[in-house]
Write a protein that binds this DNA or RNA. Sequence first.
DNA 1: ACCGCGACCTAAACCGCATTAGTGCGCCCC
DNA 2: GGGGCGCACTAATGCGGTTTAGGTCGCGGT
Lengths: 378, 378
Amino acid sequence: MTAPGEAARRKPARRPTIKDIARRAGVSESAVSFALNDRPGVSQDTRARVRRVAEELGWQANSAARALSGERAGCAGLVLARPARTLGVESFFLQLVSGIQEVLSARNIALLFQVVEDLDTECAVYRRWWAERRVDGVLVVDPRSDDPRPELLASLGLPAVIVGGPAGLGAPGAAPAGQDAAGTGPVPHPAAAPPLHSTVWADDSRAMACVLDHLYGLGHRRIVHVAGMPGLAHTERRIRSLRAEADLRGLDERHVRSVTTDYSDAEGAEVTRHILDAAEPPTAIIYDNDVMAVAGASVAAGRGIPVPGRLSIVAWDDSALCRVTHPRLTALVRDTAGFGRLAARELLAVLDGGPLRTVQGELPHLEARESTATATAP
Amino acid sequence: MTAPGEAARRKPARRPTIKDIARRAGVSESAVSFALNDRPGVSQDTRARVRRVAEELGWQANSAARALSGERAGCAGLVLARPARTLGVESFFLQLVSGIQEVLSARNIALLFQVVEDLDTECAVYRRWWAERRVDGVLVVDPRSDDPRPELLASLGLPAVIVGGPAGLGAPGAAPAGQDAAGTGPVPHPAAAPPLHSTVWADDSRAMACVLDHLYGLGHRRIVHVAGMPGLAHTERRIRSLRAEADLRGLDERHVRSVTTDYSDAEGAEVTRHILDAAEPPTAIIYDNDVMAVAGASVAAGRGIPVPGRLSIVAWDDSALCRVTHPRLTALVRDTAGFGRLAARELLAVLDGGPLRTVQGELPHLEARESTATATAP
DNA sequence: ACCGCGACCTAAACCGCATTAGTGCGCCCC
DNA sequence: GGGGCGCACTAATGCGGTTTAGGTCGCGGT
């Protein structure tokens, strides 16, 4: 197992401990601990001296030791359950993660990240992390309408923030885009059903209303919504909102409808073909992510259907993708990294013992580009 | 700080410890430890009993405690240093990470993932992780031609695997696509310059030769390579290889050349515009990632330059992107998740005290689609 | 009967930190 | 002038494992 010249490569390079600091500073280990943790019990003088020595030695607390005594792992967890196939081209998660870390790393909290195939495995990961005390809390993404995770995490006593909206059907703001433009502030949970976790979400309902406004205003009356995976909370919210908005305008299921997909480019294209083959094809399509939107645009191009001449396209979520196509795609832009920061801050608040809350992210706005125009066919 | 009904939400739910197991099994804690870790010192009988009890209780070792005594954190680290702007649309890293975890999680090793802005921050993260003993080893991605990281990690004694090829200019296989088709097996390091870490890489030189073969065979004589970030080892390798291959065919700098970018769609488009504006524009462009390739194709479309009629396009790295454009893009396909698995296996080997090695991943293959065709202009 | 020995198991030390329970000392104040 | 008090600091303990140094028992050999 061991090759020649092997032992040499592992440097001794002992990391300094508080014992080393204590010796050099001429105080006890406890004094060092007090000094470094801003606890009372040492004079300003000693505190400063200890700090200086720690600095000199490049000391950093051993995270294992700290976790063992302090009951804090200094670690948050994020599991992404996606079949490898749909892992594809999505900037969403890297952006989200990047935002999350911006906040966490400022507090010196690391992020444990895991990609798994399905929900069951995701739950298994939570159990393991919990048993191993690896994480202090987790961020749950892709909440579903019938989601086992909140309950599991609650029963484990593992603090969590649900990212992307409250799981369960009783979503706040389920009403079609309320008029109270107040919006973004945190609201305490209603007394009714006490939630298990804090939640960070974006108002998909209002956003969808926005999109429909835009298209309706351009004269579109036949619209198809190519949604994401069924069962995901935000998918359901968008579908419900679209229906509600359509109802308000007297457009029934034959005019405005949603179809679900797995978010992949393949299904996006497939569904688009099917839609365009219909007797009365829609004059506008709303895609639930950028990848499908581009795939759809490509199908249209392949059939010689001019965009936006005969078909308008809207992408939910902007990215480089929407800007490199021809024509560039009108997209619903949201600050994903900002959303990540919001979620991370909320997790920190929960870890600090703050109250459970439901916080709403910035409302996405529609960036109109060249893929949407006035409807020609009635 | 504490809301009403707050205390109730944290369940006690104590995790079982070996002490609990010891009590239930009627043996000492040490016996439990021996039994659970396959160490001699307990009878088969006791071992089985302890195992059963542990199972019943759903025990999992506290990772902090184990790290503290065992000197193993049970954690690997991966830092991604990318300015937020270029974080964009890239499936590469999620795929890579997904492959890495497939291997690591089988050994119950978690992955600490961090996204940072630049190389300096990345180095700081390594130092911190080391000092905090957070990780047992790291995977270093995006190696550069003049890379401070291997040396830093070696001096810290932090085991590492360089993913994406050896840093430093003395890359193996720097010769233009050696004839020895042997290929994929691990080779022990040459005695010359003892490496600091194990390395996993793909043979970009051979791959580039492949691409040039394809294009040259189609009659292309004026080719531009829109490369990625300068300083990255694989960028340099590709550029060197392209030059070498061009030289073999008597094509000088005026015919075949590389320009570097930051990998973003914006620069990809910008550079493409510039290239196409030249007096004698190329008949083929090779893009170092899929995003730029699509952006480039879009620029061509915008100018009414038919692809592949007057311009052929090749993308390095395939993804959904390349398949949703019109025409679909010819791409260099590689098994990124497989590459991740390879890297993870190599890290495990190093952590187990195995020898340092250089392992070569599968050679990418060119998937010809509709974006390349015979050159029309000579 | 005694020693030696291996097999099996326990007691105790240790990892590095946080924390609690002292300890010594100067100072205030009646 | 001594009890009480507060301050600065030290000693000791615990977190949950791993590991080392014993300890006991049965048994075989002489």
